[in-house]
Design a binder for these strands. Structure first.
Lengths: 224, 224
DNA sequence: CGGCTGATTGAATCAGATCAACTGCTGTGG
DNA sequence: CCACAGCAGTTGATCTGATTCAATCAGCCG
């Protein structure tokens, strides 16, 4: 069954007992969203969480003035908004499809039953939330203790690591990258120009090539 | 037994099956730390987590330049560093006693066994981590989208709420509060002066009185 | 009474935001 | 096939919140 395959493709459920996968497949539903569509908004009542089958989703917080901060960008295999299942049933941020996407939806009540039945699944989820926390700790450190060039350097090193190559394409528009790094497109643009001038990177549109990894690492550590 | 009472006093274990409490009491040990003592450091190997019986502990990240950001301040009944149990076994931040404190220590391996045995305990922990995530989301929003006066106003409202009174004492030195809000003592001092001048608060040493809650709320929302 | 720590104030500076203009690309419709 | 609307990105000029550097002050403890 196709649903079962999609559930199994969610990394949260990797290596989970096939019996539990089937149980999960019986409670999920699919949801197709188009580019730009809001999936849920900050503060909205939450009755379940999602995972991405195809496409890309951004999670962000916005303030009345219009400024936004992108907390995460999730792609295929990644779950999001699990938090809402356990805590006060409200989404803590807004989710929007960055392109046409196919999602899975897991209703909270049924999912909690699955959790109670399989302690292994709880441990997986605990590990996932722990990872998210660690990620946020880094974000907080970056925002409060480091400057934009430092954050950008760190981000490039992460991207290079995950692509396993010195050349890669940015996985989102530069305006979104700015909101992800806690700055504005103007500042990002200037920072990119500076990095090119200093020979740290080369850039052609959305394609970045790391030219001086050691210098980027020093910069990321805050020795800029 | 005294240990059992201390374990039961940890809010993470409120309403947990007494049988499991006993099991937990059998695996914990106590640790006495003096003021200023480092309990663990960022990146250090982690083999368990802690909770506070008496005293106060701050969790922070520091960069080489000497700047620090205080992520949490934990008091009696609160657990910390649970994250290290589930994810790659490293402490993601540094913990330091702000005063002489008595702690409980839960070894990870034994604790995981207790988790597997009691699904209820897993759910409690999931809820706790979810709460931490929500807290961090707010911190990230504050740091990237709001200014210092806005963050301080929000903090005062939280304190007033938890004390259920318009007058309260700061629970840490102002220098620490500054590091908690992502700024410096100088900036905090000036911001406090401005708030007094504008009649939003009154201050006498570490004692704060809220005088214009509505204005503080507007400020906290970012309408300042 | 020193001496330490935390807090406050002032002046100078800076990173980044803001405001505004312009470029270049892409897709659409005449 | 071209014209142009619309959006992402870049660049310049300016402004400002916050940091930095420096000095002083207040309280507390041995």
């Amino acid at each position: 069954m196709e649903l079962l395959r999609d559930v199994a493709a969610t990394s949260l459920f990797r290596d989970i007992d096939p019996k539990d996968l089937t149980r999960l497949a019986n409670i999920v539903s699919t949801k197709q969203v188009e580019k730009g569509q809001i999936i849920f908004s900050t503060g909205e009542a939450a009755h379940g969480f999602y995972s991405v089958i195809t496409g890309k989703v951004r999670i962000f917080r916005a303030v009345p003035s219009g400024k936004e901060h992108v907390l995460h960008v999730f792609g295929p295999g990644e779950a999001f908004a699990e938090v809402a299942v356990f805590k006060d049933m409200r989404f803590p941020a807004t989710a929007q499809a960055m392109e046409a996407s196919k999602l899975l939806y897991f209703p909270a009540v049924e999912f909690k039953r699955a959790l109670a039945a399989d302690p292994q699944l709880s441990l997986r989820l605990l590990a996932l939330l722990s990872e998210r926390l660690k990620f946020f700790v880094k974000k907080i450190e970056d925002l409060s203790l480091k400057e934009v060039p430092s954050r950008l350097a760190g981000h490039f090193l992460v991207l290079a690591g995950s692509h396993n190559a010195d050349t890669f394409r940015l996985d989102m528009p530069k305006s979104q990258l700015a909101a992800y790094l806690g700055t504005l497109p103007e500042t990002l643009s200037r920072t990119l120009r500076d990095m090119q001038n200093k020979g740290l990177i080369a850039m052609d549109g959305a394609e970045i090539t790391i030219q001086d990894a050691a210098a980027l690492e020093a910069l990321a550590r805050g020795e800029g």
